[in-house]
Design a protein around this nucleic acid. Structure first.
Lengths: 222, 222
DNA sequence: TAGATTGTTAATCGATTAACAATC
DNA sequence: TAGATTGTTAATCGATTAACAATC
């Protein structure tokens, strides 16, 4: 019993996007939506939407569709947004400060508790009420404040060592912005945001798009 | 002739990661590497590496493996990193400034030319030599400076309108950080960085990991 | 009720992995 | 040469799409 079907990463990647579209519909006071209507907005197939949702249960009703508000809240629960998380940011540079300033995250239950840095110029300052603390206080802060998540916005040379310390002190998830893969032991979730890789995909696709143009019009490449 | 096989998005997603690992090897003065050795480092199959690379040509040598320096440079060319791009940033908040400060991007040919904002407090200031200009100058700047890429680090309410203006003025690619999907007409490449979605995947995976723990040890959930 | 739309099974498509002949 | 490792074909696996009975 308690068999949990393993959900594929492809499905998980799409869930937050459904959540965003449903939130937008909710703001527009849309009460119900069918998989077909949603599929047109999101430019995916209605089949995929129904398949994805049915991994987690039947949220719709035949002949009616889905209740927007109910589905929104159910997907929120699936994503764990009904819970509250204590988050710290390691590295109080621009990126760390950008994240600290995102009030949208707080609304979804991600409570930022402090930032940490090694630079004496920023230590002692505060951002939206959050203190920037020295790294020497990291261990005690993590242990005393039940920190679940750490965002790593520091140079890649420091990321690995800091991450394994954090895990040993009880952190369960790392939101990694450093351009490196963290090889951590133990049960810890790592979510990478590799901006450089994103920009490279952009330039690849730009050049691929231009090649296609060239073929249509005058071909300047061989 | 000139038949270009369509490369799948899955392959493109992996290419920058290969590039990063090869760059790391290059820094350690590693001269050659086999697909098997690389597969162990990267935790993918050797088969996948060879399949992926052979979409673009045979870069290796039987019995030897791949020359690190050569493969690095070839993947760079595939990704379009041998070219130079003129980039602007729309929205000079913390995220915009964080991107403007990343010197790594410049090294790969992405030349940041200016930032734009509506806030009089930041207009007129400069970041690493780049001016923060008012939005009123956006059109002329884009047209006169051959801007290829625009990073959108502004509120989602503004993103759509600004993006379609940019495209009409000649911008070929949008690096979109606003939490919305841009529906643009014409041939423009959009690469999204949706931080909120990334954080939601993290929380999903955190909770999925905890459920698994529960099953192994004492089960506190039903 | 009749029409609409889900939940779900079956069919298709594509991506990953395995295997091995070619060859350095 | 013998050993190693690629490039590539074939086999497998998984994800997406299509179809439709169930049912609101």
């Amino acid at each position: 019993m308690c068999e949990e079907k393993q959900i594929s990463a492809a499905v998980i990647r799409r869930l937050p996007r459904y959540y965003r579209y449903l939130g937008d519909l909710l703001e527009k006071d849309v009460v119900r939506i069918s998989s077909r209507e949603l599929s047109e907005k999101m430019k995916v197939t209605a089949s995929q939407i129904r398949q994805d949702l049915n991994n987690f249960g039947g949220f719709g009703q035949q002949g009616y569709g889905y209740n927007v508000s109910y589905l929104y809240s159910e997907i929120g629960k699936i994503l764990g947004l009904d819970k509250s998380y204590n988050v710290i940011i390691i590295g109080a540079g621009h990126l760390g400060q950008a994240i600290a300033n995102y009030t949208d995250f707080e609304k979804r239950g991600f409570k930022f508790r402090a930032l940490f840095d090694i630079d004496p110029k920023v230590i002692g300052t505060s951002i939206r009420g959050m203190d920037v603390l020295p790294m020497s206080q990291l261990e005690s802060f993590v242990k005393e404040n039940n920190i679940n998540i750490a965002a790593l916005t520091l140079p890649k040379s420091k990321a690995g060592a800091v991450a394994s310390d954090l895990v040993s002190w009880g952190v369960k998830a790392i939101w990694n912005f450093a351009p490196t893969d963290l090889n951590l032991s133990g049960d810890v979730v790592v979510e990478n945001v590799h901006l450089a890789e994103s920009l490279m995909r952009l330039s690849y696709n730009m050049n691929a798009a231009e090649s296609k143009d060239g073929r249509k019009g005058n071909i300047s490449w061989s």
